[in-house]
């Protein structure tokens, strides 16, 4: 991947986090401390502390309505657009609390990208979908190359290289979702949040997205919210289980699925409820 900085890396003035022997509790790209999120008076996320290891894939699982999507959206301040939502606690990205009033939320979203549940390509051409983010953020460089690299990284280049200037809405759902991933990759974000990215996709496309994450984790940190427990066990390094707004258990994925410490986790991963 080409090395380029879209924005001066103002969060990253300290030392680079170490890449070896990742233990999420120490070597984290992103962490939540005592995070409570409310919609009006309703508590959606209740005092959750969690750290995501750099260059690893962390899955967040849990039954519907457990607050996992709300929690994920807090990491790039997407909850800002819900007027009733409020957050307590701190979310640290490379040591800086992204909810500090001095931090620009736009800058946060440049560094922490997001892929949504439903593919949401812009009603523009495939090329423009990928080029859009870098362009509005003042990217100076070879845009064609950036678009090609991003589409290649998202494993969709071969399918779209002959129709780059056709509408993105002509693509299939799985292709659209990979295009949205390419769009996020073009921003060179360190962290990519994925909010049930495969729930609208068929198993084949789902497999491709999972392979993609495994390939791209060399350069990115992934956090994925998923309903699909097989997906969590196949594609993630760490798994967090949430229920009713609380974090129940967080550990290596293998342990979570084979030998969880908590009875609720065991019931959930073995399909006894949820």
């Amino acid at each position: 991947m080409t090395q380029m900085k879209i924005q001066p890396n103002k969060f990253n003035q300290g030392s680079e986090p170490e890449k070896e022997a990742p233990d999420p509790r120490q070597d984290s790209a992103l962490s939540a401390e005592h995070v409570t999120i409310r919609y009006g008076n309703t508590v959606a996320v209740d005092d959750v502390g969690l750290a995501f290891a750099a260059n690893q894939i962390t899955a967040i699982i849990g039954p519907s309505g457990c607050g996992k999507s709300t929690f994920l959206r807090a990491f790039n301040r997407m909850n800002d657009f819900i007027p009733s939502a409020s957050l307590e606690g701190a979310i640290r990205f490379q040591g800086i609390d992204i909810y500090d009033p001095a931090v620009d939320p736009v800058e946060v979203r440049l560094r922490i990208g997001m892929v949504f549940q439903k593919p949401n390509p812009f009603p523009k051409t495939i090329y423009k979908n990928v080029a859009w983010g870098p362009q509005i953020n003042g990217f100076k460089g070879d845009l064609d190359e950036l678009v090609e690299n991003s589409l290649r990284s998202a494993a969709i280049w071969d399918e779209v290289k002959d129709r780059l200037h056709k509408s993105a809405l002509g693509l299939s759902g799985g292709q659209q979702q990979r295009l949205c991933i390419a769009r996020t990759l073009a921003m060179q974000s360190e962290v990519i949040l994925m909010d049930e990215p495969c729930s609208a996709l068929d198993p084949l496309s789902t497999g491709r997205v999972e392979d993609l994450m495994l390939e791209l984790k060399q350069n990115h940190t992934f956090v994925i919210v998923t309903h699909n427990m097989q997906q969590a066990s196949r594609a993630s390094d760490y798994t967090a289980f949430m229920e009713a707004g609380k974090l129940v258990e967080f550990d290596h994925t293998e342990k979570m699925f084979q030998n969880p410490s908590n009875q609720r986790t065991e019931d959930y991963v073995s399909g006894r409820f949820g």
Binding site: F116, I136, N137
Partner: peptide, 19 residues
């Protein structure tokens, strides 16, 4: 979802609106 997609790519409100 388009609005959110634009915002998630680091657009300001005005950029999301106009572009």
């Amino acid at each position: 979802s388009l609005r959110q997609g634009a915002m998630a790519l680091g657009a300001t409100r005005f950029e999301a609106l106009t572009r």
